[in-house]
Amino acid sequence: MAFESTLPTEDPLLSLSREMIYLRRDFSRQSQQIEQLATLLRKFVTDDVAPVQAVPRLPQPFIGRQQIDPAMVRRVIRRRQDRHKHFPANLFADPAWDMLLDLAAAKAERKRVSITSLCLASGVPMTTALRWLSVLADKKLIERKEDPADGRRVFVELTDDAFAAMARYFQSLDGDDAPSE
């Protein structure tokens, strides 16, 4: 007679959903690293004699006196992603806010974000993420910029007005350095 466990088993769909979220996070992180390496390699190949330089960074984002602490934004993002530990993963979907958070942190860190990376960070299917990118662009919250080193790649960044709005949002939080939103 086979041994039958009396322990409750986790719903296979919930387990698969959790695994997909972990994989998406890891893939997003690895994708950004690969893009940075590819940029350095392209620069090395095209500049026969010139030394390889660091990936260009955006200027330090100060809008008036407003600035954003990227570590705080990253904590918010992590907490948003951790909600699946307590609730079904498909219960929450706010791709526009997830994109704005990711772009705010990236701009504060003076990093560039590709469309592919941003779509992955949104946590929704690529087609849905692309539709939200169009909405954000129509509202003048983001702008697309072609990669001068690779015409196939497009970067996305917050407009100055959107960055200022995000800075005001984070400054308005009363002492809570990591909101759950």
Rank of each mutant, 00 (worst) to 15 (best):
E4N: 05
T6N: 01
T6R: 04
L7Q: 06
D11K: 02
D11L: 00
D11C: 14
D11S: 09
P12A: 08
L13C: 00
L13I: 07
L14W: 03
S15F: 06
L16R: 12
L16V: 04
R18E: 02
R18D: 03
M20E: 05
R24V: 00
R24P: 00
D26H: 13
F27A: 14
Q30F: 06
Q30M: 08
S31V: 03
S31K: 04
Q32V: 01
Q33L: 13
A38M: 11
L40R: 15
L40Q: 15
L41V: 03
K43N: 09
F44R: 15
F44W: 09
V45S: 11
V45I: 15
T46F: 09
T46I: 03
D47C: 09
D47K: 15
D48E: 13
P51E: 08
P51T: 12
V52E: 08
V52Y: 02
Q53H: 14
Q53T: 15
V55F: 03
P56S: 12
P56Y: 11
Q60W: 00
I63L: 01
R65L: 06
Q67L: 01
Q67S: 15
Q67M: 05
M72S: 06
V73K: 11
V76H: 04
I77F: 06
I77C: 02
I77T: 09
R79L: 13
D82S: 12
D82T: 04
R83C: 02
K85R: 14
K85A: 08
H86I: 15
F87P: 02
A89F: 02
N90K: 07
D94Y: 03
P95V: 06
P95S: 05
A96F: 01
W97E: 02
L101C: 11
D102N: 11
L103D: 03
L103M: 14
L103P: 11
A104W: 05
E109N: 12
R110S: 14
R110K: 09
V113C: 12
S114K: 11
I115V: 15
I115D: 10
S117N: 13
L118F: 05
L120M: 14
L120S: 13
S122R: 07
G123Y: 06
V124Q: 07
V124M: 08
P125Y: 03
M126T: 14
T127I: 14
T128W: 00
A129W: 09
A129D: 06
R131F: 02
W132S: 09
L133V: 04
V135G: 01
V135L: 11
L136Q: 12
K140P: 00
K140V: 10
L141F: 04
L141I: 02
I142E: 04
D147H: 07
A149V: 11
A149E: 10
A149P: 00
G151D: 08
R153Y: 09
V156N: 01
E157W: 05
E157P: 00
L158R: 04
T159K: 04
T159A: 02
D161H: 01
A162W: 00
A162L: 08
A162G: 08
F163T: 08
A164R: 12
A167D: 03
A167E: 03
R168C: 05
Y169M: 08
Q171M: 06
L173A: 04
G175F: 09
G175K: 10
D176E: 09
D177G: 12
D177N: 10
S180G: 13
